[in-house]
Simulated assay, not measured.
Amino acid sequence: MRRPAACARSKRQSVLRTVSRAACAGRGRALGASLALLALTGCASAAPEVPEPVATLPAGVAVELQQLRSDVAGRQAQVHLVNEGDAPLTVGAVRVEDDRFDGAAVRVIADRVSTVSPGGSVDIRVQLPPVDCTAPDDGEAHIVLEVTRDSAATEVAASAPDPLGFIAELHARECLLERVTDAASLTFTGFEPSAPGAPAALELTVSPTGDGAVTIAGIGRTNLIDFAGAASEEVRPLGIEVAEGDAEPIVVQIPIVPLRCDPHAVQEDKRGTIFDLVVELEGESGEVELFVGEEMRGRILTWVAAWCGFGG
C-alpha cells in the first residue's frame, strides 16, 4: 500500500530515508546541517503523492461473478463489471479472493488492461485455482481491482456477488470428486466412432486405489450426447462397485448416439462432452463432472457431424 507522505516514498538508501523521515517530523535538529539538508532535499524530490487505496468501488461501478457454459471445462469464470459512473474506468490487475479456493483467481491474460466507458460494461475472464476442501461451501467472494480514474491509480476492494451460486456448487462437486478419487480415479480413456445410425463407444476406466470404497451408479446424458437404446433415460445405470483393497482397473464401454442433429449444436457446443457421474460414497449420493478432454472432444464433435450428415 502506498504511503501518503512524500518522505515515506524517498528512494535513498535506508540511512537517508531514516534521516528524511526524522527531518519531516521535526526530530532531526540534532543532526548535522549537511545531513539535514539531504533529508529535506529527499522530501522535496520524492515521487508525487498517490491517493490511498480505498475500500470500495467508485460510485456507479458494480461487479459480480458469473460462469458461462464456455468457462466450465477450463475452470474459468467472468468478473462482470458495469460502469454507471460519469468517467471512464481503466482496470488492470484483477484478483478474486475466496476461502473456498486454494489461492486467488486472477486474469487469464495477466497483462491485459480493460477500459470501460460511462454506461458500459466488461467481462474479465479469470482462472479459478483449485478448491480448498477444508473450507465450507457457504463462503463469500471478494474482488480486488487495480483501477485508474482521472490519472490516479489505486486498488479497490468489494464484495463480489455470485447470483447463480456457481462457486458453492463447484466447491461441493470438486470436493466430492476429491473424496471419490481417494478410492478410484475416473477417466475417459477411449472413443470409437461409428457409422450413421449405429452407436459409437465411449470408454470409461475406473482405477481403484485400494484405499476406499465407492460406487459409480450411473452416467447422465448431455445436451449433445444420448445413450443407445436408452432414449427415455437421462441417467444410464453403470453399477460399478469399488471395494477397499481393490486394485484391478474396471473398463466400461458406453454406447452413445447424438442427442440432436442440428448443426449449431455442434458449432456452439460448450458442455456437450462434460458428463455427470452419479456416485455413492460413505452412504451419500451425489454427482461429479467428468470432461472427456480436448482431444477426445474434437473427435466426438467430428463424429456427431458425420453421423448427422452435415460434416465437411
Results as ranks from 00 to 15, higher is better:
29 R>L: 14
177 L>M: 11
234 E>S: 09
205 T>C: 04
141 A>G: 08
16 L>C: 07
163 P>T: 05
8 A>K: 06
294 E>P: 08
139 G>K: 09
191 F>P: 02
67 Q>K: 05
237 P>K: 04
244 E>Y: 05
100 R>W: 03
56 T>G: 00
124 I>M: 13
238 L>A: 05
117 S>G: 01
226 D>P: 01
149 R>F: 00
27 R>D: 15
170 L>Q: 10
116 V>W: 00
289 E>N: 13
34 S>P: 00
96 V>R: 06
265 A>M: 11
91 V>S: 10
53 P>A: 14
203 E>G: 04
53 P>I: 11
299 R>D: 13
48 P>L: 09
45 S>H: 12
264 H>K: 09
134 T>G: 14
173 R>G: 04
169 E>W: 01
125 R>F: 03
34 S>W: 14
184 A>Y: 00
80 H>Y: 14
165 G>Y: 13
189 T>E: 02
124 I>Q: 05
82 V>H: 04
96 V>C: 03
154 T>D: 07
29 R>N: 15
81 L>S: 06
272 G>C: 04
159 S>R: 08
206 V>P: 03
230 A>F: 07
238 L>Y: 07
25 A>S: 13
310 F>V: 02
291 F>C: 01
125 R>I: 08
291 F>Y: 15
14 S>D: 10
131 V>R: 14
84 E>F: 03
172 A>W: 06
47 A>V: 13
274 I>Y: 02
216 I>R: 01
71 D>A: 00
234 E>H: 09
153 A>W: 07
24 C>S: 15
307 W>L: 05
273 T>A: 07
184 A>S: 07
252 V>F: 03
9 R>E: 04
93 A>F: 06
292 V>I: 00
257 V>R: 07
186 L>H: 01
224 L>M: 12
94 V>A: 12
142 H>W: 13
219 I>T: 06
288 V>R: 05
221 R>A: 08
4 P>W: 14
174 E>C: 04
238 L>F: 09
199 P>Q: 13
210 G>S: 03
211 D>L: 10
247 A>Q: 14
165 G>S: 02
112 R>K: 13
92 G>E: 08
239 G>N: 06
133 C>I: 07
38 L>H: 08
249 P>L: 06
15 V>I: 12
271 R>N: 12
307 W>I: 03
147 V>L: 10
262 D>G: 12
133 C>R: 08
180 V>W: 03
110 A>P: 02
216 I>P: 00
57 L>M: 08
112 R>W: 07
196 P>S: 03
240 I>K: 00
310 F>G: 10
302 T>C: 00
173 R>Y: 07
87 A>W: 01
221 R>H: 10
248 E>T: 15
70 S>F: 00
225 I>G: 04
97 E>R: 15
46 A>P: 10
195 A>F: 08
100 R>M: 09
181 T>R: 13
1 M>W: 12
283 G>L: 11
185 S>N: 08
258 P>G: 09
245 G>M: 08
191 F>M: 02
99 D>Y: 01
11 K>A: 14
212 G>N: 06
184 A>D: 06
292 V>M: 03
21 R>Q: 15
212 G>K: 11
214 V>D: 01
286 G>A: 11
